[in-house]
Design a protein around this nucleic acid. Structure first.
Lengths: 190, 190
DNA sequence: GTCTATACAAAGATAGAC
DNA sequence: GTCTATCTTTGTATAGAC
């Protein structure tokens, strides 16, 4: 049950991170959600909260990256459309209290010995951009164009989370999605 | 000194919100940064932390809106370029520990009697989009096109804050800015 | 209106039995 | 490896003198 407990704690931390943010997440929440005992935290995560947040961000980051690897790559515009279709339900959850665990880790208070969360977030986001850029090159784009478009899409994803959370709706996402689809189709064809 | 103290507390709250997020912000920080006394918090903000966060978000939101009202509107593409030039230094601050106070308010834990911060954030963001859409209509765009482009720009602004904070750099912003400039110029001319 | 002092709760972090 | 119990710090919130 060792790895199970650890995995459940990380999963609970991801949910707590999405809903409450890094500073809003408490061990009390994580423990009651995962069913673990209080002392288990420091057994599995000697680095304390920083380590738990960092590992949760890494874990969630890998999950998202794996999903991104699946978007169809027949054309650059198809990658954009596939990406938007993939993330729409995720952004929708942000409209009702959800959020992005990696973004929450990025917003952590930084301090000496506590830079794990930011670094984990940086790695995760970098991996998303790489993955998406890779799909775009498969679709035929040159490396610099692929990088630029991939950065744009991930930037828009994170912004959409914020706006959805703030406004309680997903209208802004749909408008932005429409604009970016037009951008890709206009530049590279359908 | 009454309004001065209040104003200094709000200003300190904005900075604290940017740097530490809503849950990471503490009265201790705000008080020491503003030079106010402990009891002054509940004298000026009977609603406690929720009220302070909400007012800080509103205040910062109005400031940003006023800045947006100044972007030149000779053409839609000029609005986009002016917007990007305006926000670049702000995003740059996010790369080294800064952030968006309104976004921080939007990420607050929501609960009964504590929905002030989210509402303030929603109003602020809505006002930014309106203001920007207004500039775009002045520049000649139809209402629906202006709204879509304005939403896209604000979405990318908030996303850029997140990526800058996470990666510690502003490369992603510059790439996204380039892509959006191309979008506007391609659709509506220079 | 502003200050000092303090109550009360919740957080993170440890110790040690099992 | 897992649990219970507890320490210490920090945070929000209040009371009351000036």
């Amino acid at each position: 049950m060792a790895r199970d407990t650890r995995a459940r704690m990380i999963a609970a931390a991801v949910r707590s991170l999405q809903h409450d943010g890094a500073e809003g997440m408490s061990f009390t929440d994580v423990l009651s959600a995962s069913g673990a005992a209080r002392g288990a935290i420091y057994h599995h995560f000697p680095g304390g909260k920083s380590q738990l947040v960092a590992e949760a961000a890494t874990d969630n980051g890998n999950e998202v990256r794996a999903a991104l690897a699946q978007v169809p790559a027949e054309s650059p515009a198809a990658v954009v459309r596939g990406f938007l279709r993939l993330i729409r339900p995720v952004v929708l959850e942000s409209a009702s209290g959800g959020g992005c665990a990696v973004a929450a880790a990025a917003m952590t208070k930084s301090g000496p010995g506590h830079d794990g969360p930011q670094q984990a977030a940086a790695v995760a986001i970098g991996s998303w951009i790489s993955e998406l850029a890779g799909r775009l090159t498969v679709a035929g784009l040159a490396a610099d164009e692929a990088g630029e478009l991939a950065s744009t899409l991930i930037t828009m994803l994170e912004g959409a989370h914020v706006l959805a959370r703030a406004t309680g709706g997903i209208e802004c996402f749909d408008q932005t999605a429409h604009a970016l689809t037009a951008l890709a189709e206009g530049r590279y064809g359908r």
